[in-house]
């Protein structure tokens, strides 16, 4: 009598659950570190976000999938926006030492992790192809 529940739904629920806990904890610790000028707290936030990514990838592996297009867009978009805010804040002198180091650790770790993930998943050549726009037979971009 039972119908099967879509695997995509199960995976999505797990991903939401991971980010609702580890992601939110990462955000809170980062903010706490920045507001108190406490590097270790901010690094704990970075650690929590990295842990969320690792858990996300484990879920992807269990369900035999990669990041969805929406997840990739959201992740890269959020990364870019936060990086922009960080650079602007740094240029305007609004970042103290702990914030500066925490920001570098955050963006550096996530950036390196992202490239390492792509390299592990697609290989170096494949990673480049993820961003390279191929020309189609008609000469128009695909």
């Amino acid at each position: 009598m039972a119908e099967a529940m879509p695997k995509q739904t199960e995976r999505g629920l797990l991903v939401f659950a991971i980010w609702a806990t580890l992601g939110a904890a990462g955000l809170c610790f980062t903010l706490e570190g920045l507001s108190r000028d406490a590097l270790m707290l901010a690094l704990a936030g970075t650690g929590a976000v990295v842990a969320a990514f690792v858990a996300h990838m484990i879920v992807n592996w269990v369900y035999g999938q990669g990041f969805t297009r929406g997840e990739a867009t959201l992740g890269i978009g959020a990364y870019g926006l936060l990086a922009l805010v960080f650079v602007l804040a740094w240029l305007s002198g609004g970042v103290d030492r702990a914030g500066y180091l925490a920001g570098l650790a955050f963006f550096g770790t996530l950036g390196f992790g992202f490239v390492a993930y792509l390299a592990a998943r697609h290989g170096l050549r494949g990673t480049f192809s993820q961003f390279h726009v191929h020309g189609s037979a008609t000469g128009e971009p695909k």
């Binding site: 009598m1 039972a2 119908e3 099967a4 529940m5 199960e10 629920l13």
Partner: peptide
């Protein structure tokens, strides 16, 4: 839910 909820859920 069509008796389809996954056991872990």
């Amino acid at each position: 839910a069509g008796h389809s909820l996954a056991p872990w859920i």
